[in-house]
Amino acid sequence: MNIGFEKAYLLQTPLNQTSSEIIPTYVYKVGLQQAQYSFAAAIGLFNAVINLFLLWYVNRVAKRLSGNGLW
């Protein structure tokens, strides 16, 4: 879920901004441009928790499919 922030931000134009918005660019716009630091921090924390859960889940599934671990 981590795409290069700089690439996505620099490729955005007013025509494609609604469809090319990703979490890091949204956090940048809300947190730094609109000065809503606590809201941006909450979004970043939520993103980190979701990433951690997905990593844990995929690791469990991979262990189960390969037979290297107890479920």
Rank of each mutant, 00 (worst) to 15 (best):
N68E: 13
Y57W: 06
A62Y: 07
S19D: 11
Y28K: 05
W56Q: 09
N51K: 10
L15I: 09
E6H: 07
Y26H: 08
E6A: 14
S38M: 14
Q17S: 12
Q36M: 07
N59T: 13
N51S: 14
K63C: 06
Y28Q: 04
A8M: 12
T13M: 03
E21N: 09
L32P: 02
Y37A: 10
Y9G: 03
F39R: 14
S38K: 12
G67N: 02
R64W: 09
I23C: 13
V58K: 09
N16I: 03
I22W: 00
A35C: 09
K7V: 07
G69Q: 04
W56K: 13
I43C: 00
A40F: 04
G4D: 12
S19H: 11
P24N: 02
S38V: 10
A35M: 05
S20V: 11
P24A: 03
R60N: 10
A8H: 13
A62G: 02
L52G: 12
A8K: 14
T13C: 02
Q17C: 14
E6D: 15
F46L: 12
T18C: 06
L10H: 07
G69L: 01
F53W: 07
G44Q: 04
Q34R: 10
G69M: 00
Q12N: 11
E21T: 12
V58Y: 05
Q17M: 13
A62V: 11
F53C: 07
N16S: 00
L32K: 15
N47L: 08
L45V: 03
Y28P: 03
K29W: 06
A62M: 10
A48G: 04
L55V: 05
K29L: 06
I50W: 09
Y9Q: 10
V61F: 04
A42D: 14
